[in-house]
Amino acid sequence: MSALRAKPPRRVRILRTLEPEGERPAPSWAELVATTCGPLEVRPSRADGFDGTITSGRFGAVQLASVRAEPHAVELTASRAGGVVSGELSLTCVLDGEVRVEQGGTSAVARGGGLFSYDPARPFTLRMRHPVHMMSVKFDHRLLGHSSVGEHMLRPAVWSGQEGSGALLAGLLRTTAHHMTELDPVADQLGSSVASLVSAVCGERLADADGGPAAARRALLHRVQAHARARLDDPDLTPQQLARAHHVSIRYLQLLFQEERTSPAQWIRNERLERCREELRNPRSAHLTVANIAQRWGMHGASHFSRLFRDRYGVTPREWRKTALQPTG
Rank of each mutant, 00 (worst) to 15 (best):
V290M: 07
A302W: 11
S285G: 08
R272E: 06
V290H: 04
L280I: 04
G301F: 12
H287F: 04
F305T: 05
G298Q: 01
F305P: 07
N282P: 07
L280W: 01
L273G: 12
F309R: 09
H304Y: 13
R296H: 10
I293C: 00
F305V: 09
A294T: 08
E279R: 02
E271H: 11
V290Q: 02
R296Y: 06
H300Y: 13
C276A: 07
R272L: 04
L308C: 12
E279N: 05
L308S: 14
P283N: 06
I293E: 01
M299I: 12
P283E: 02
R284C: 01
E271K: 08
G301I: 14
A294N: 06
H287W: 06
R277H: 11
S285L: 05
E279Y: 01
I293R: 00
I293V: 09
R307Q: 15
A286M: 06
N292V: 02
R275D: 04
S285D: 06
H287V: 12
F305Y: 11
V290C: 05
S306P: 13
D311E: 14
E274G: 10
V290R: 01
S303T: 15
L308I: 11
M299R: 08
E279K: 03
H287D: 09
W297T: 00
A286W: 01
E274R: 11
L308H: 14
R307C: 13
S303Y: 15
A294S: 09
H300F: 12
N292T: 10
N292H: 09
N282V: 04
N282F: 04
S306I: 13
R284I: 06
R284W: 08
L273R: 10
R307T: 15
R296S: 05
R277A: 07
R272I: 02
T289K: 11
E271W: 08
L280H: 01
S306G: 15
Q295F: 09
E271N: 12
R284D: 09
D311I: 10
S303D: 15
R310F: 11
L288R: 06
W297Q: 02
H304E: 14
L280C: 03
F309E: 07
L308E: 13
L280A: 00
Q295A: 14
S285Y: 06
R281S: 08
R275N: 05
R277T: 08
A302D: 13
P283M: 03
G298S: 03
N282E: 10
A291L: 10
E271S: 11
N292E: 11
L288D: 03
L288E: 04
S285I: 03
S285F: 07
C276M: 09
T289S: 13
A294I: 06
E271I: 08
H287G: 05
G298Y: 01
R310H: 14
N292R: 07
E279L: 01
H287L: 03
N282Q: 09
R310Q: 15
T289N: 11
H300I: 12
P283G: 02
C276T: 11
A291W: 08
H304R: 15
A291K: 10
N292Q: 10
R272A: 00
Q295D: 10
F305N: 05
N282L: 04
F305W: 10
A286P: 07
R275T: 06
R296L: 05
